[in-house]
């Protein structure tokens, strides 16, 4: 089984977006990924089947629009290597996307890495030794919130590779290039858990 972990969420298909971008679909070929952490708002069954095809091991938490699946948990924790990775959709964290509230949630879950969604905006930062990642929306679905003029949600997801206590995060974003076409850009962020402290 592959050791790559895919964190993806906020599809909103078909309400707000028609489908996962074709370029993302192409990248997410079966067999490459070991586990999928779905951050909620999967909303439709076809997308679920697609993800199942990408990797059979799929962990889902409930988003605010997953009305058809009331039994999903609000948050989950998985352990990979020396890291505890917690993930939640984040609509129950108030104020939404607030770093202090997220820190409280991370402590509550006792995890080293917290993934959250709901804002449709990619974010990654370290706070008090913990790592916070928001993979954004896989479809770039529109969202309420404070968006600057001519700013639109960028379709994105993240791929994680755990090496011991280090986490390498690959960020995939579909950004418009100079030629007007949209291109997938990949960035890499590395987080290393501080094991020397308390």
């Amino acid at each position: 089984m592959s050791r790559l972990i895919l964190a993806i969420g906020d599809f909103h298909i078909p309400d707000r977006a028609p489908d996962i971008p074709a370029k993302f679909r192409k990248l997410l070929a079966p067999g490459k990924i070991g586990q999928i952490l779905c951050l909620g708002n999967l909303t439709d069954k076809e997308t679920y089947e697609f993800l199942r095809g990408v990797a059979p091991d799929i962990q889902i938490v409930k988003g605010d629009f997953d009305v058809e699946a009331p039994n999903l948990p609000l948050s989950k924790v998985v352990t990979h290597g020396g890291l505890r990775i917690g993930f939640t959709h984040g609509h129950t964290i108030i104020p939404q996307g607030d770093s202090d509230s997220l820190l409280i949630e991370a402590r509550r879950l006792d995890c080293d890495v917290l993934l959250w969604g709901g804002t449709h905006r990619f974010e990654a930062y370290e706070l008090e030794g913990k790592f916070f990642v928001n993979p954004g929306s896989a479809t770039g679905a529109m969202n309420s919130g404070w968006w600057a003029d001519d700013e639109e949600p960028v379709p994105s997801f993240v791929l994680m590779d755990v090496q011991g206590t280090a986490l390498v995060v690959y960020v995939y974003q579909l950004r418009p290039g100079e030629d007007g076409e949209k291109h997938v850009s990949v960035e890499k962020i590395t987080y290393r858990k501080d094991t020397t402290g308390s």
């Binding site: 790559l4 990248l27 997410l28 490459k32 090496q163 390498v168 995939y172 990949v186 890499k188």
Partner: peptide
């Protein structure tokens, strides 16, 4: 770790 770290895994 991989020999060449800056490679898109997909």
């Amino acid at each position: 770790t991989l020999g060449a770290p800056d490679i898109d895994p997909l």
